[in-house]
Design a protein around this nucleic acid. Structure first.
Length: 247
DNA sequence: CCCTCATGATTAC
DNA sequence: TAATCCTGAGGGG
């Protein structure tokens, strides 16, 4: 489930399990050069939108992006051999994480790190309410459909297709139209409220009283009014909308 | 067993 | 807009 809440949760888990420790870093698959990091101390793991950045002592950063297919497997049994397709394995004193099928896993020097961060818009899980004005300006002035703009990581960092569907539903906004800055600010407020719940729950939470439910995402009918949920492509992804509750 | 699709993003056309 | 990456889940046969 690689939207922002998942990446922030991975960062939190891995920081708790590994930060401050000297790690054994390897690439059983062989497609990642682990030698600059093996035997180095992990200083921190941070999520920026959907990107993970690992900082090490005396080494560059590691940049991981899960794409749509990437997963982490966790084990407390350090003697367990990692599966052959593991791109990167991070092993600490008691815990190891195996990274499978990421879209990116690479060393990042300081300049590349700065370039990556500069390319990202505000992240509701990092800047939160403090970035409301900037977030509203970016989304409210974006050209084209709001449903495409909100997935653009240079506008807001971290929103994916599931959050798009649920946040725009809750805001009563059809993804195919534009929004002004006032509406954009209200969508940001919803993101700032709900994404942290998603970090804790490990899934998209769009109704705190029913964390396993969705309003429209991948549903046949609207959970609020029962209307048939419409699907169409917006911004290159399937958008799920209620024709009654979103205008 | 085979096929399709997916919570993503880049690249090429 | 389409192909690509090339895993995993789910459905049909």
């Amino acid at each position: 489930m690689p939207e922002a809440h998942s990446l922030h949760r991975h960062a939190r888990d891995q920081r708790a399990a590994l930060a401050g420790q000297v790690l054994s870093v390897s690439s059983p698959q062989g497609r990642f050069d682990a030698t600059p990091f093996d035997g180095h101390r992990l200083v921190d793991v941070q999520a920026h939108g959907k990107h993970l950045l690992y900082s090490f002592e005396q080494a560059p950063d590691v940049h991981v992006h899960l794409g749509m297919k990437g997963i982490f497997l966790r084990t407390e049994d350090l003697s367990l051999p990692p599966r052959a397709g593991t791109r990167m394995r991070l092993a600490g004193e008691t815990t190891a994480f195996s990274l499978i099928a990421p879209s990116r896993c690479e060393a990042l020097d300081a300049a590349a790190r700065a370039e990556l961060l500069a390319s990202l818009g505000p992240d509701p899980l990092r800047e939160g309410a403090a970035a409301r004005e900037e977030a509203a300006r970016r989304l409210g002035t974006a050209r084209g459909a709001v449903g495409a703009a909100v997935l653009d990581q240079s506008v807001w960092a971290g929103i994916g297709n599931a959050w798009r569907a649920e946040l725009l539903f809750l805001a009563g906004i059809d993804p195919g139209r534009r929004v002004d800055e006032a509406e954009a600010g209200r969508v940001w407020d919803l993101a700032v409220e709900l994404l942290p719940l998603g970090v804790d729950a490990g899934q998209v939470v769009s109704d705190p009283t029913a964390p396993d439910e969705r309003w429209v995402y991948k549903r046949e009918t609207c959970r609020r009014c029962g209307s048939p949920v419409g699907t169409r492509t917006v911004g290159g992804r399937t958008a799920y909308t209620c024709p009654v509750d979103q205008r």
